[in-house]
Structures are given as C-alpha cells and as structure tokens.
C-alpha cells in the first residue's frame, strides 16, 4: 500500500505535538523559539500534503506566504530576545518573572 494522506497528516500532527511539548518544557527562550518554528513547519507540511492530495495549488501558494511571514517573524523575535537580554542579562524564562506577585 502506498503512503497516503493519512500518513502525512499523522506525521504533521506528531511534529506539531513535539513542538508544543518543547515550548512548554524548555526554559531557554531560544530553544522555545525553535520549537515554535517546528510547530510552524508541521502546519506547512499538513498544508502541502492536503494541497497535493486534493490536486489544487492553493495550499502550496499559502505555504509560500507562510515561509515569508516566518522569516519576518524570526527576525523580529530574535531582535526582541536580544533586546530582552540587554535589559535583563538572561534569556531563561524562569528568571523573567517580574510580573509574578
């Protein structure tokens, strides 16, 4: 039996869950950001698979946009992390607790 849509979607869901797990688990902001990107990649994989199996190009064009937005997002996010580091000298989320209490 050939690999079908279900396998691709299962892979995409698993990748998304791993990314989600990492966002909740890790404490280094940079690694959290990488896990966030993993979730984004999982959703693009689902879009490409749906697009291929439905025989329409719209999903692929949408992934094109997602890649563009992701590139902009990474640039802005890393600039925010650097600004945060300059102010607090840490990127560990458990030390960024000034809103606590």
């Amino acid at each position: 039996m050939n690999v079908g849509l279900n396998e691709y979607i299962l892979l995409s869901v698993l990748l998304f869950v791993i990314g989600f797990f990492g966002v909740l688990l890790r404490k280094n902001t940079l690694v959290i950001y990488m896990c966030l990107e993993l979730m984004l990649i999982a959703s693009t994989l689902a879009l490409v698979a749906f697009s291929r199996f439905n025989g329409r190009m719209d999903g692929n064009v949408f992934v094109f946009f997602i890649l563009t937005v992701a590139a902009a997002e990474v640039a802005v996010g890393l600039a925010i992390i650097v600004a945060l580091f300059r102010k607090r000298l840490t990127v560990q989320v458990e030390e960024l607790n000034s809103l606590k209490n």
């Binding site: 691709y8 940079l30 950001y33 990488m34 990107e37 990649i41 693009t44 490409v48 698979a49 697009s51 291929r52 692929n60 992934v63 094109f64 890649l67 992701a70 590139a71 990474v74 640039a75 890393l78």
Partner: peptide
C-alpha cells in the same frame, strides 16, 4: 516527495540557510 519542489528549495534556503544561521 509531495512534488512541491519550489517549496522544498525555499524551505532549505530560507529556513535551513537563513533562520538556523540567525539562531
């Protein structure tokens, strides 16, 4: 494998090239 050659190329170029290097 899903025939999205341009997207694969862009993924390698933009993500694996630019984003990982930035990280």
């Amino acid at each position: 494998m899903l025939d999205a050659y341009l997207l694969a190329f862009m993924l390698i170029l933009v993500y694996a090239g630019a984003v990982v290097a930035l990280f």
